[in-house]
Simulated scan of single mutants.
Amino acid sequence: MAATPASGEQEEEVCLWSWGAGTEGQLATGTLEDQFLPQRITSLPAISHIACGGAHAIALTGDGKVWTWGRGTKGQLGHEEMNNCLKPRVVKLLESFFVSDVAAGWNHSGFVTDTGRLFMCGDGSFGQLGTGNNESHSSPIEISFSDATHVEQVACGMRHSIALVKDASSSGDLVYGFGAGRHGQIGKPATRSSYLPMVVPGLENCSIADVCANGDQSAALTSNGQLYTWGRGFGGSSGSHIPQLLTSPLRFSKVVLGWNHALLIADGDTYILGGDHHGMLASAPKSQQASSPSSDDSSAIPNLRKVPGLDGEKAICIAAGAEHSALVTEHGTVMTWGWGEHGQLGLGNSCDQTCPQALDISYNGPFASSQFRVYCGSGFTFLAKLPS
C-alpha cells in the first residue's frame, strides 16, 4: 500500500483509467463488460507500472508489492487458484519480496525481485514458465539459474518468455528464452518448445538495456540504441531465431511489440515497423513507404517509418497491444489507433483507426505530462497517472 502521509500532508490522488475488452475482468471495473470510453478505476494503491497480457493485468507498486486481476483460469494471477478476478488483489506469496519488474503473456506471468530472482506462474503448456516441464502453476514458482546470475528483467509473449540476466561469469549481458519456439522466438532453430531457459545466441557481447516480447516476437534494445529482433518477422520479412540487427542510422530509446508490429522512439520521434492488420499501423503517404513485399518475397526488409498525425508533438510513452497502439505526447495528449473492435481505442466506438486519434480524458487538477503512462493488453488499454 502507499505510505500514509505525515500530518499536514495530503496523500496524492491515484488516477487510473481502463477501456476495451472486459469480459474476463481485465479492466478492473468489477464488471464483465467491454468499455468503449475510459473508465476511472479507484481500487488500486499508487502504482509504478502495469503489465497487460491476453486478458489479465499486473500492477506493481512503489514499495514492490504486486496486484493482479482479470483472467485467471490458468493460474496466471498467482492467487493459488484458477479463477477469474474482477477486482485487483495482492499476490500474497510475493509479499515477502520487493518485486522490481513484472510481465504478462497470453496466459502466464513473470515477476523479478530486486535481488535478481525470477518467479513465474500460469500456463506452462509450452514450457513458457521455464520450470523444466509443461505443468501450469497457480502460485509463483522460482526459476533456477546459476548462482552467479542476477535476473534484471522478464518479458512474456504469447506462449514464450524472455529473461535478461547479469552473469558474473560472462563479459556481457545474457538473454534467455524459453517456451514455444516454432517461429524462432526463443532463440533456437524452429522447434516446438524449450522447457528450460536457454541463452539466445548473438547477444552475448552486447550491453542490453531492455527486452520485450509479444505474440511470436522478441526484441532487445542495446544501451547504445541498437535494436535486435527475432521470431516470426515483421511485415513480410522472414523470421529468424538469430537476433537480427535493424540496420538504421537511428538510435532508439524505447521499443514495444505487438503481434505483428513494433513501435519505437528515436530522438523523440515515433516510428512503426511491421504489417497493417486491422489498420494497427498508421498510414503514410506513398512517397514514404517502401514497395509492399509480395507474398513470396521472404527477403523483403520490414517497412520502418514515422508515425504521422502527431502534429509535431513528441511521444514520451508508447504501448502496443495485439493489434492496436497507444502513446502519450510531451503535452499530455493520449492517442490511440489500430484495431478497435472491443473499444480498446477508447473513442466511444468499435471502429479501426489508421492514424492516431486523441482521447478525451477528463482529469481535473495540475499534472506533468511525464507522469502519465499508457499500457496495452491484447484488446484493452490502461492509462495511469504515476506519483510525482
Rank of each mutant, 00 (worst) to 15 (best):
F252L: 05
E330P: 10
E11C: 00
S294D: 07
M280S: 14
E9D: 15
L129F: 10
Q289R: 10
S193T: 05
F119H: 07
A46Y: 00
I265S: 02
V90W: 08
E313P: 02
H241V: 00
V154I: 08
T149K: 09
E95V: 00
L32E: 15
A103M: 09
A319W: 09
R89Q: 15
G346T: 07
S283C: 12
S287Q: 09
G275H: 03
H342I: 04
G62D: 13
F367I: 15
D297R: 02
E330R: 12
H241M: 03
R251W: 03
Q288V: 08
Q357N: 05
Q244I: 04
K92W: 08
D296N: 10
F382W: 02
E341Y: 13
S292T: 13
L245V: 02
W19E: 02
A46Q: 09
I318A: 04
D216M: 06
E12T: 10
C156P: 13
K65H: 13
V200Q: 09
S237Q: 07
T23S: 15
M198F: 10
I272S: 03
G116R: 09
Y375H: 07
D63H: 14
T222I: 12
D311L: 15
N364P: 06
M1A: 13
E24S: 01
I272N: 00
E13I: 07
H49W: 14
L16E: 00
D267R: 00
D269L: 04
D173M: 08
A28D: 01
V90A: 15
H183C: 03
A320C: 11
Y363D: 11
G78P: 12
E135I: 02
E95C: 00
A168E: 06
I41C: 00
G233N: 07
G377T: 07
A21S: 10
T191M: 10
P201V: 08
W17H: 02
G70S: 02
S125F: 07
L227D: 07
W259G: 14
